[in-house]
Design a protein around this nucleic acid. Structure first.
Length: 542
RNA sequence: GCGGGUGUAGCUCAAUGGUAGAGCAAUAGCCUUCCAAGCUAAAGACGAGGGUUCGAUUCCCUUCACCCGCUCCA
């Protein structure tokens, strides 16, 4: 399937439009049209129903270590700025960066360190990305390279001053970038705002800066205690949330796949540390099955466990559910959902403050020197100080729960289901000649319109009967009525919209009160009593 | 962010330094008893801004968006 055919259909039929299109569009933002909004809503509702409201708290589900509870939450998009400082997003998402024009590498402006050195009458600021203990050695190696000197000529290097960060250097044209061959390849520092910044308060100043959330997850963590105190849930349990998140993608591309405003469907599942590995595996498999049950069943869907070196600094296991989108190169997959074992990183961060991994690989509070007291330190970002531990009422054990996070992209999901649904086949027209048919083979639960009703011809009382059926269907789910033109054309239009069933009132209806029901994918037709139509369709679409 | 390409009606395409033509779709009506191309009618476009020019959709510049490759994907 070629991607541009799907993009064209999405626009033509009203699944997806470019945001602000009449003004030329806005990169990384997309709107859902009349059909798209139903598709996305159906996807989100299916998720909420299957994960939250329909969850059986009492049963031990296949693959689960025990019964568990599920509950929901809906947090604000803007939260206290400290949330993002403790979660680590602030440091990661709001930095001045410099790019190396030669190696195309990007560095944090305040983290790239270096030292002034002079040789052959030239003065250069040599930089390094080496760890502190290897720093001196690496600087010397790079300095020799900068001046084209040999190791034995190291005494020709005249070092000047201490190792300092790059932001202390006024003239970047004298900087020698790590791994570069020439001096002066770094760009001027540029703000690299991966989080959307905003102002809280009508008279807001820079001090009132706040951020649009880059993920919904943090809202769940900061409400962990509220949920515990208000709902009688016991570990193990999960809190689910759907909602918009915002990230300044560096390169928005590939239709809606990498949007700057997007919707997430996230679960934070809290469990005992001893059980967390089993729960991780449960959620990984459970979430994979959810996609296959809704029709992403083919080889284009895969579950991929991350390698150890791919894991985030806090994670002890992550799997991605990925789809081979048509716009990706052959054999490549794009992420639909990540299932991450996050350990106790998040709850601890909001108790203690921003954590970093120390030399032993353990998480500890990140500290910075106190101004004027170089030998003393303070936390870089203070946590809430609240106790977010869990106390088991039976065993009286206190512990910080571990978290399993199945985090899905609603827009990516919708896009994958659209890609999977697009089919072209050959069907005969009224003269028996084969014609290309475009059909969106969406799962009935996801289809924007569940059924369409047609009078075969616009006379003999057929429209009246069809309209009655239409009204009956409308009380249960989205249905569509059409009496214009040839019936074959009406069928084809519904095929493009992904409508799974078409109901046609014909001459026989007038005699025996039955109508035909036509299946979108097989084109098979069968007769159903008018009184049974709603039940027939309802049983097939839910 | 860099390099290359593209931008005319809802879609697919055409022509032109003197303000654009078609097919399909869509709309209204007719005809139609089961899978889009029977008939009639009316409607609809040069991505945006600036420049050159008597005059720009056409030439130039800028910008925006999309596509391809690299980078990025925290």
């Amino acid at each position: 399937m070629e991607m541009d055919k799907l993009v064209s259909l999405c626009k033509r039929r009203g699944f997806l439009f470019q945001s602000s299109e009449i003004y030329g569009g806005l990169n990384g933002f997309w709107d859902y049209g009349p059909l798209g909004v139903e598709l996305k809503r159906n996807l989100k509702n299916a998720w909420w129903q299957d994960m939250v409201t329909g969850h059986d708290d009492l049963a031990t589900l296949p693959g689960a270590p025990s019964p568990y509870e599920m509950t929901g939450l809906d947090c604000t998009i803007i939260m206290h700025p400290q949330v993002w400082k403790c979660s680590g997003h602030f440091d990661l998402f709001c930095d001045m960066m410099v790019d190396c024009k030669e190696t195309k590498r990007r560095y944090r402006y305040d983290q790239l360190r270096g030292r002034w050195v002079e040789a052959k009458g030239q003065r250069v600021f040599v930089t390094t990305t080496a760890e502190a203990e290897a720093e001196g050695e690496d600087l010397q190696r790079r300095a020799l390279k900068a001046f084209n000197l040999r190791g034995k000529d190291a005494d020709q290097l005249a070092w000047d001053g201490d190792v300092v960060s790059l932001d202390k250097v006024d003239d970047l044209s004298l900087a020698y970038a790590p791994e570069a061959k020439e001096v002066g390849t770094l760009t001027e520092p540029r703000e690299f705002n991966l989080m959307f910044k905003t102002i809280v308060g009508a008279m807001g100043t820079a001090d009132d800066a706040a951020f649009l959330r880059p993920e919904t997850a943090q809202g769940i963590f900061v409400n962990f205690k509220n949920v515990l105190d208000s709902s009688r849930v016991k570990i193990p349990f999960g809190i689910a949330q759907q909602g918009k998140s915002f990230r300044n993608e560096i390169t928005p591309r590939n239709f809606t796949f990498r949007s700057r405003e997007f919707e997430q469907m996230e679960i934070e599942f809290f469990c005992h540390p001893n059980e967390s590995r089993k729960w991780y595996e449960y959620w990984r498999d459970r979430r994979m099955k959810w996609y296959t049950d809704l029709g992403l069943a083919g080889e284009r869907l895969q579950l991929r466990e991350h390698d150890a070196d791919e894991l985030s600094h806090y994670s002890c296991g992550t799997a991605d559910i990925e789809y081979a989108f048509p716009f990706l190169p052959e054999g490549e997959f794009g992420e639909l959902e990540g299932i991450a074992h996050r350990g106790d990183f998040d709850l601890r961060s909001h108790m203690e403050g921003k954590l970093v991994k120390n030399a032993e690989g353990c998480l500890e509070l990140e500290t910075v020197p106190i101004e004027g007291h170089p030998d003393r330190t303070r936390p870089k970002y203070k946590g809430s100080g609240r106790d977010l531990q869990y106390r088991d009422e039976v065993t009286n054990e206190r512990f910080t729960p571990h978290v399993i996070e199945p985090s899905a992209g609603a827009d990516r999901g919708a896009l994958a289901f659209l890609c999977e649904a697009y089919h072209e086949d050959e069907q005969p027209d009224d003269k028996g000649k084969m014609q290309t048919r475009v059909v969106m083979q969406l799962h009935p639960r996801l289809a924007p319109i569940k059924a369409a009703v047609f009078p075969l011809v616009k006379k003999d009382g057929m429209p009246e009967i069809a309209q009655e059926i239409y009204r009956g269907l409308k009380k249960k789910f989205p249905a569509f009525y059409d009496e214009k033109g040839a019936v074959g054309r009406r069928y084809r239009r519904q095929d493009e919209a992904g409508t799974p069933y078409c109901i046609t009132v014909d001459g026989q209806t007038l005699d025996d009160n039955t109508v035909t029901v036509r299946d979108r994918d097989s084109l098979e037709q069968w007769r159903v009593k008018v009184d049974d139509v709603v039940a027939e369709i309802e049983s097939r679409v839910s």
